[in-house]
Design a protein around this nucleic acid. Structure first.
Length: 196
DNA sequence: AGGAAGATCTACT
DNA sequence: GTAGATCTTCCTA
């Protein structure tokens, strides 16, 4: 990995930040080692005007600044978001990563062996990296944080595909899910969601 | 104190 | 492709 992304990176439209986060490094600092994954799938969420937005989140997120982690429980899974917005409040859900470093530790946390099944889903990657409510509110742009997002030294050429969001019943007429084309670690490859 | 909902996952057919 | 497990937060009483 290379440099930590500055807080300004997250002061932008969620949609733009979601796209720009693809290919970046998600780094989880543990006592002895770091777990590193490349972000390969994200979704943008808005507050006002977004049918997928849950009003009950409001009290918990309104004081969160851009570039902080927002972690919540759904269906017995912790999901990781990074607050990112310019004017209207919003954020980016990290949906899948590609394991880069600390793979054995991720296997242990997941109790799974198949590398393609370790981090290819929002609830899976949090388990693989031991991300829980404890990390809610950490600044992912701060060197001292236990969870940070960096850029890689060599940024690879990536083609981005967009589709409708997963698990959202009444979605906007807008494709807010983004993933890296051809990557084997994105969460769902069914035909409903791949609509370039 | 209890129940329902939910941006999911696994295991099974 | 579907059922059942799972658990935290919010709502009602």
């Amino acid at each position: 990995m290379d440099k930590i992304l500055p807080q300004e990176f997250y002061i932008n439209e969620p949609e733009l930040v979601a796209k720009k986060l693809l290919g970046k490094a998600l780094v989880r600092r543990l006592y002895s080692k770091n777990l590193i994954g490349k972000i390969v799938e994200t979704e943008a969420y808005y507050s006002e005007g977004d049918p997928a937005f849950r009003k009950d989140f409001l009290p918990r997120i309104l004081n969160l600044k851009q570039g902080t982690a927002f972690i919540y429980m759904v269906h017995a899974n912790w999901l990781l978001n990074v607050i990112a917005y310019d004017k209207i409040f919003g954020g980016v859900l990290i949906r899948a990563i590609e394991p880069i470093e600390g793979v054995d530790t991720m296997r242990k946390f997941r109790g799974m062996n198949n590398i393609f099944n370790l981090t290819n889903g929002p609830g899976k990657l949090t388990k693989a990296m031991n991300i829980t409510k404890d990390l809610n509110g950490v600044k992912v742009y701060d060197t001292k944080s236990k969870l940070i997002i960096c850029s890689f030294k060599k940024e690879e050429e990536t083609e981005i595909i967009s589709s409708y969001r997963v698990g959202v019943k009444k979605d906007l007429n807008k494709k807010l899910r983004f993933f890296i084309k051809g990557n084997n670690f994105v969460s769902k490859l069914d035909s409903n969601n791949i609509m370039a």
